[in-house]
């Protein structure tokens, strides 16, 4: 396993997430695709950190960012799901097609 393997796997993950964001119409599925994008970023970070050895140890800066990304993603999901739940309570739907109040 070289660095390239990890980067390609993460790249595929990123593209899957981006593709899903564009194609899928269910807000919850779109939200899951966003998590895929963040997962691909963390995988890339860990790979870069593991393969950039400074005096025999992995680079700690990148791993620190991984923890911050996980924390921020959790906060984002907490707020995001709350918004989606209140949207569902008022419109009884979580589909993008049903969001048509704002137009111009």
């Amino acid at each position: 396993m070289t660095l390239e393997h990890y980067l390609i796997a993460a790249g595929i993950l990123f593209c899957t997430g981006l593709f899903g964001m564009i194609v899928r119409r269910n807000i919850l599925v779109i939200f899951m695709c966003l998590e895929l994008i963040l997962a691909s970023a963390t995988l890339t970070l860990v790979a870069f950190s593991r393969f950039r050895l400074t005096s025999g140890l992995p680079d700690i800066d990148a791993q620190m960012l991984v923890f911050f990304v996980i924390t921020v993603a959790a906060a984002e999901v907490a707020v995001g799901l709350a918004i989606i739940v209140s949207l569902y309570r008022s419109t009884q739907s979580v589909h993008m097609e049903d969001l048509h109040t704002l137009k111009g």
Binding site: I27, I30, L34, I37, L38, T42, T44, L65, V79, S86
Partner: peptide, 30 residues
Amino acid sequence: VGSLEAGVKYLLLGALSTGMLVYGITWVFG
């Protein structure tokens, strides 16, 4: 509904931009 709808749209696109920001920082770091 307008405010919630705006919230959901901002949430989805904002979260996408977060993902791109992290992935971009990752590559600059790499």
